[in-house]
């Protein structure tokens, strides 16, 4: 069973994204809005999801989908929507906002229904939407960044930290789902090392932010990701802005790229360490589940 988790959870999504990126020739001048890798990330995620958890869940009158099930549709259909809408800037902006809104609506549904009352729901939803937008704007600074592979590395650190924290704090499933996106971004990072002219596009960054933020919320709201850990990981999303503070402006792109990775690594590392210490022993090993 561990082998299946490794194959479907890491290898297949990584291969789909990595091989796909290598096979599709890069345009001479990479358009920062080009989103075809969003489609590859979505395909890798979809294949991994089906391999790990079976047929994609369909909503119906007799089935209410869990937030993690909705995320399957958000990521797969979102990747396609981002790809097809990226030729037109207005359409691309609208599809990104719609995707973010849909993700929030699906993920927060149960919390709004069972936990938050009236005004509380409005305040929380608005606050989380604002936080998601802020993280999105911050990470969007990585689009077309000329800083070696550090943009990809920053994303990889963020997603790996989130996957580990989710798995350590009670939900292996959420950890595996973040791991699917993580495997895709890891493959992009490897390709970037081989092909330096590969840059992150706005479309793929949107998909990564929507998926990461969505699964982060699932872990915080429906599993047991502690608030401080969630805050540490969310703060790491502001690493790109930190590297643009006036004090670092005169520094080289590589230095600022490295700074982003270190900043993200410190915050995410603290979150993972907290999660690991809070759950002193492996939460699954103790009872052999």
């Amino acid at each position: 069973m561990e082998q299946a988790a490794l194959v479907w959870g890491v290898l297949i999504p990584g291969l789909i994204v990595g091989v796909g990126t290598l096979l599709i020739p890069l345009p001479r001048t990479e358009d920062r809005h080009s989103s075809w890798r969003a489609l590859l990330l979505a395909a890798g995620f979809g294949a991994g999801f089906v391999g790990l958890f079976g047929a994609p869940p369909m909503p119906s009158s007799t089935r209410t989908l869990a937030a993690t099930d909705w995320m399957f549709w958000v990521v797969t259909l979102g990747g396609a929507a981002l790809y097809f809408s990226d030729k037109n800037r207005t359409l691309a902006l609208v599809s990104r906002l719609l995707l973010g809104s849909a993700m929030l609506a699906f993920v927060l549904r149960a919390t709004i229904e069972y936990q938050w009352q009236g005004g509380e729901a409005v305040v929380w939803t608005a606050g989380l939407a604002g936080l998601g937008l802020a993280i999105g704007f911050s990470l969007n600074r990585l689009a077309a960044c000329r800083d070696g592979a550090s943009s990809h590395a920053t994303l990889l650190v963020l997603l790996t930290g989130l996957a580990l924290c989710a798995a350590l704090t009670g939900s292996a499933k959420i950890g595996q789902l973040v791991g699917l996106i993580c495997a895709g971004v890891g493959a992009l990072w490897v390709v970037k090392l081989l092909r330096p002219s590969l840059y992150l596009s706005g479309g793929e960054l949107t998909l990564i932010v929507v998926a990461g933020f969505g699964f982060g919320l699932c872990s915080y709201l429906y599993s047991d990701l502690p608030g401080p850990d969630a805050c540490l990981i969310a703060s790491a999303g502001f690493a790109p802005w930190l590297a643009e503070l006036p004090v670092f402006r005169g520094r080289s792109a590589r230095f600022r790229g490295g700074l982003r990775v270190v900043f993200a690594l410190l915050l995410v590392g603290a979150a993972v360490a907290r999660a690991a210490f809070a759950f002193e022993t492996d939460p699954y090993d103790e009872y052999g589940c």
């Binding site: 209410t64 937030a67 069972y114 009670g170 499933k173 699932c218 429906y222 599993s223 009872y287």
Partner: peptide, 20 residues
């Protein structure tokens, strides 16, 4: 077992916060 109960309540199994 408290830890197992916590896991059974998580999104891996009964997902009790979404399906109470």
């Amino acid at each position: 077992n408290d830890k197992l109960d916590q896991h059974l309540r998580s999104p891996d199994f009964f997902d009790v916060k979404q399906f109470p």
